[in-house]
């Protein structure tokens, strides 16, 4: 990780600690746009981390800029930060300039037809609508949210508003981004974003669980002293470590011939860890963790939401599995150990 990224992560963490406390996440989940948080993120230039310097961005490669998403996961940031970060990088020099101002979200064509639910559509100014042309090339349209028709927004598991894109998608035009020349790559990048966010939220859930176990007393001692609790926290640690490594491996593979495989592994493995991890974190927290007052649910509800976004575990597992079957049994080990 380079020095610019390191400094950016440190300031981002300071910002989020102050500007994204429980009250802000609660209010956002109640439908109130977190204006101050968004203004501060913009002031620090974080949504422009991967936008070229020529366009007024920081010019970090995606592998570096995406490390911010781990913090977005840790602090349960109730904004389409991943979509804006990636979307502005995609707009780059090719897309319309006006799209670089304001909150942006992404409409991704769904494998089953139509579009995946669009995160935070009601709050966004711009929607980057992706469409696959007849020649397989991906066309991106930066459309003002007002020009599109959406279903009623629903809060989903996390309380982060999402809506279905119903109409208004331009039939022609748009631009192409060298960063996402195909729908597959765009889907992979978005899936990777969720894997990294899941890893961050899991890290936070583990820290909360360990702190709670060391503080909560029953039967005259901290529950951390009970082997049954220790064993559960050890299992949680394994899931967190696996999610972190899988997500990081996805970032490390960016722009390598192995990237598509690494992203499928990242989303499949982190998605699995999200479910297992949330379950243990709640069990350790007991009834306290089931209350709205405790902040654990800000992480766990996002774990449950994020594991489904941009392809759940089974989607990415099946993709990996089909590729293995196509290559055959004798190619399995070479495939698992391939470097290029």
């Amino acid at each position: 990780m380079n020095e610019t990224t390191q400094m950016m992560l440190e300031s981002a963490e300071r910002l989020l600690r102050d500007a994204c406390p429980k009250a802000v996440v609660d209010a956002a989940e109640g439908g109130q746009f977190p204006e101050a948080l968004w203004t501060e993120l913009e002031a620090l230039g974080l949504p422009n981390a991967c936008l070229g310097e020529g366009q007024g961005g920081v010019g970090l490669p995606l592998a570096e800029g995406f490390t911010l998403l781990r913090l977005a996961g840790r602090y349960a940031v109730p904004l389409p930060f991943a979509e804006t970060l990636l979307g502005r990088a995609l707009l780059g020099a090719e897309g319309p300039k006006e799209g670089l101002a304001g909150l942006l979200t992404i409409a991704l064509p769904s494998p089953a037809g139509g579009f995946d639910p669009v995160p935070f559509a009601p709050w966004a100014q711009w929607v980057l609508v992706a469409r696959e042309g007849a020649d397989g090339a991906l066309m991106l349209h930066c459309v003002a949210v007002k020009a599109l028709t959406f279903s009623d927004a629903r809060p989903g598991l996390a309380g982060d508003l999402e809506a279905r894109l119903l109409a208004g998608v331009p039939e022609t035009g748009g631009f192409q981004s060298p960063m996402a020349p195909t729908l597959e790559r765009l889907r992979g990048l978005l899936a990777l974003s969720r894997a990294v966010m899941i890893a961050g939220a899991l890290e936070s859930a583990l820290e909360l669980s360990v702190a709670y176990a060391l503080e909560r007393k029953q039967f005259g001692r901290e529950i951390a002293k009970f082997q049954a609790v220790q064993q559960q926290l050890a299992v949680l640690t394994g899931e967190v470590a696996a999610a972190l490594r899988a997500a990081d491996a996805g970032l490390e593979a960016l722009d390598s011939p192995r990237e598509a495989t690494a992203w499928a592994v990242a989303k499949a493995r982190a998605g699995e860890a999200a479910g297992k991890g949330a379950e243990i974190a709640h069990q350790v927290h007991g009834a306290m963790g089931f209350t709205h007052e405790h902040q654990l649910h800000h992480r766990t509800r996002r774990l449950w939401a994020w594991r489904d976004q941009y392809g759940h575990e089974a989607y990415w597992q099946a993709r990996l599995g089909r590729a293995l079957c196509a290559a055959g049994a004798d190619a399995l080990w070479p495939e698992l150990t391939a470097t290029a």
Partner: peptide, 11 residues
């Protein structure tokens, strides 16, 4: 079957 094989590979 594909999902099970892919799960093994991801792990």
């Amino acid at each position: 079957q594909a999902a099970v094989l892919g799960r093994m590979a991801a792990h």
